[in-house]
Design a protein around this nucleic acid. Structure first.
Ligand SMILES: [Mn+2]
Ligand SMILES: [Mn+2]
Ligand SMILES: [Zn+2]
Ligand SMILES: [Zn+2]
Lengths: 144, 144
DNA sequence: TTCTAAATGAAAAATATTTTCATTTAATAA
DNA sequence: TTATTAAATGAAAATATTTTTCATTTAGAA
């Protein structure tokens, strides 16, 4: 799904959000970059050409765009850092995007993928994190 | 690897770290819990029985324990939240634990795993994040 | 015991994120 | 157009998270 201005405008309007110059600029900053940008990185890029745009607008815009599915949010939510006893490098989570419940599961088959990647990239792979995001049963019901 | 007090003591000593009462308590808090605990959650648990322990000690202790591989750190590093253009729910990263470089890769085979999980748990799965952690070639060399 | 490198807690600094509120503006309909 | 108004903005303050600094205490070795 290329993220054309037209499309963004339509989707925003559908939800009675306005397409403001500030939002255009934020979208442009994200769309024109392959990397994952932190709010601060986005702010800095935007700020160069539009010094009047503040941090608050960045945060608010990101929240809306992510909610509408126009951009994708990784490792979201306040402080997402956490600790657990060492199960060295194997983590498998099933996360409910609504209620944030986390279920651990076992039995992933990533050995093959891991080897391929390792030989292709030269990385010495030490562990992995596999997270599925979705809606738990309770939250599916609740969503009517 | 059960995390016995004896073992922890040995490993700490090996690296000329001291085994202090505060560290005992933090380790105990993490080891006695299945969940992933944020620094704040750990602080709160510890604080109930040992109100004199401060936040700084928690943070410092977590850093050391993680570095020694005694505990496992998830979604680490300051602000780990970031945004990218929508590739709905598919994310595959190869992350260097030393220099933090992130490489995207394609072609994971998770359909089967996803279906199994879905039918086992009732989750409606909408996306996933697969991250391999390791050392990139450059950092392997550097580590001599 | 004595000694000392390492650890601690308090406070402050640095970041990151959210809330509040007065003002401005995009979109729509006269 | 112009008027209307719900939505958006920016500044500032409030909150939350993480790191740094430093004077004091302590674990562990001798
Ligand atoms: Mn886990
Ligand atoms: Mn990615
Ligand atoms: Zn749920
Ligand atoms: Zn590297």
């Amino acid at each position: 799904m290329r993220l054309t201005e037209r499309k963004v405008a339509a989707i925003l309007r559908q939800h009675s959000y306005k397409l403001t110059p500030q939002r255009r600029v934020v979208i442009q900053a994200i769309a024109s970059n392959q990397d994952h940008l932190t709010p601060t990185a986005i702010y800095e890029r935007v700020h160069q050409h539009h010094p009047s745009i503040g941090f608050v607008t960045i945060y608010r815009t990101l929240e809306i765009l992510a909610q509408l599915g126009l951009i994708c949010e990784l490792h979201a939510g306040g402080s997402c850092r956490s600790y657990t006893i060492s199960a060295p490098g194997h983590h498998h989570h099933l996360i409910c995007s609504n209620c944030s419940r986390v279920i651990d599961f076992t039995g992933c088959e990533l050995g093959k993928v891991e080897q391929d990647l390792s030989s292709k990239t030269g990385f010495r792979i030490e562990g992995h994190l596999l997270e599925f995001i979705g809606l738990c049963q309770a939250c599916q019901r609740e969503a009517t």
